[in-house]
């Protein structure tokens, strides 16, 4: 696709006899929320790991911003602008909210090997961190230790840390998990705004949330993408209904 930010081409990955990724191709284009759905064991996590780094495909390629990143590490892909949030919050739990955001800013600025100047007094790092916290509405909580945050706030902080990287694309693993109706709605509104800055590849279990916010949906079953399309197309696709929505025949 022409304006594809992230493009996955014919990825194959086997664990012994199990084909977890069986020739998967997928595109994330500018300005969209692209949801990836599929039943348990369909190979969603395996695919995400190959896109984010940390797991190398047996064959096929991953391109990000027009560059082949198949052989690049997780950290390298992050520095290129791949922002990531996790299903179970991956945060430094003993750090304050601000420290977590500064950690993101440190990674972004490449100042990891500065040994002498205090990080929490560096105006550039603090400004970047606070900008990200502002965006998600955590600006009044910056001194709170992360382990004391509510589940929803941790999700917000996850997004804020990813935002410090000024990502060119987001990879979000079940951001709505455990959020509650109100929180889910707020997050959906926020993602609708965010997608204009950087497209979002969303892995999500919550069907209502997916149908509410996704521009396109890809359905992964047994390591293969059986359909890609708009919400309506996926809803009415008979194959999807059988394989995933658990219906024999459309009524």
């Amino acid at each position: 696709m022409p304006d594809s930010i992230l493009s996955v081409r014919n990825i194959e990955k086997s664990f012994g006899a199990l084909k977890a990724s069986d020739g998967i191709s997928l595109d994330l284009v500018a300005g969209e929320i692209h949801a990836l759905i599929g039943p348990n064991g369909a190979g969603k996590s395996t695919l995400i790991k190959q896109i984010a780094g940390g797991l190398k495909p047996d064959s096929g390629s991953v391109a990000f911003m027009g560059r082949d990143v198949t052989a690049k590490s997780t950290a390298q892909r992050a520095r290129l602008g791949l922002g990531r949030t996790f299903q179970i919050s991956a945060l430094a739990m003993q750090y304050s909210v601000l420290e977590n955001a500064v950690l993101g800013a440190v990674g972004q600025s490449g100042s990891v090997f500065q040994f002498f100047r205090p990080a929490m007094k560096d105006p550039a790092l603090l400004a970047r961190a606070r900008r990200a916290l502002d965006r998600v509405g955590l600006q009044d909580h910056e001194d709170i230790i992360t382990s004391e945050l509510s589940h929803g706030q941790r999700r917000q902080l996850e997004v804020a840390v990813a935002l410090t990287l000024e990502p060119k694309a987001f990879l979000m693993d079940e951001p709505m998990a455990g959020m509650g109706a109100e929180g889910s709605r707020e997050l959906t509104t926020f993602l609708q705004e965010l997608k204009h800055e950087a497209p979002i590849l969303l892995v999500e279990h919550d069907m209502d949330a997916v149908f509410a916010c996704a521009d396109r949906i890809s359905v992964l079953v047994y390591g293969q993408i059986i359909a890609t399309g708009s919400v309506d197309e996926i809803r009415s696709n008979p194959q999807v209904r059988v394989a995933y929505l658990g219906e024999e025949e459309p009524v």
Binding site: A75, A90, L91, Q94, N100, L103, G107, Q108, T164
Partner: peptide, 18 residues
Amino acid sequence: LALNGAHQNEERALTVGI
């Protein structure tokens, strides 16, 4: 900050590009 952050959560350190 990065060293202790990576101790608390390695995945997070990696995904901010460290």
